[in-house]
Amino acid sequence: MADSSLKDVTQLLSAAAAGDSQAAVRLLPMVYDELRKLAASRMLKTPPGQTLQPTALVHEAYLRVVGDADSRFAGRKHFFFAAARAMRDILVEQARRRASLKRGGDLQRVDFVESGIAIEPPSDDVVGLAEALQKLETDDPENAEIVNLRYFAGLTTEETADVLGVSTATIERKWRFARAWLRRELGERAPPSGDLDG
């Protein structure tokens, strides 16, 4: 089961790298499933109370899909794009679920019990951030992608530069700008209300 889906992901990655835009679209749900499955199986082996690190998960998923050898694999970029978005969705989902537990948006423990999966939650307002990011994506897709990779897939500056094929200095500059932009966005918009206490 898991193997066949792994194979699917690999095929999609190759197709996406070869320029198949459909493959790139289909990649996201596949990677999303892969990450969730991986998280669930890791959670079983994780002592209670510990959480999974998003970075570790993404990298492990990469190793499972692509393998160790081919670090120059052309599908690498697509994988991390998809993984960053998938992780973003997962974290947003988790944050929403947590926030929906009445009176305690911060009861991590309930997640362990209810879903069996707990990913180290980011310290920021993930839901609000994801919304702001969507806005950035329309205004400035490149910077949004950097945020996705740096923040949600947990790539380092070097790794991000590597994946995007630009210099680390560029990433650092853009990262700083994107952060200021998002920070202002989050600061000025209405508080993330509607969906937080749903």
């Binding site: 970075t55 180290e120 980011p122 310290s123 949600f152 952060r179 200021a180």
Partner: peptide, 14 residues
Amino acid sequence: HDAGATGFLRSPIK
């Protein structure tokens, strides 16, 4: 809003 030394958007990675 330049994040400067604050923790804003520090990656969730440990």
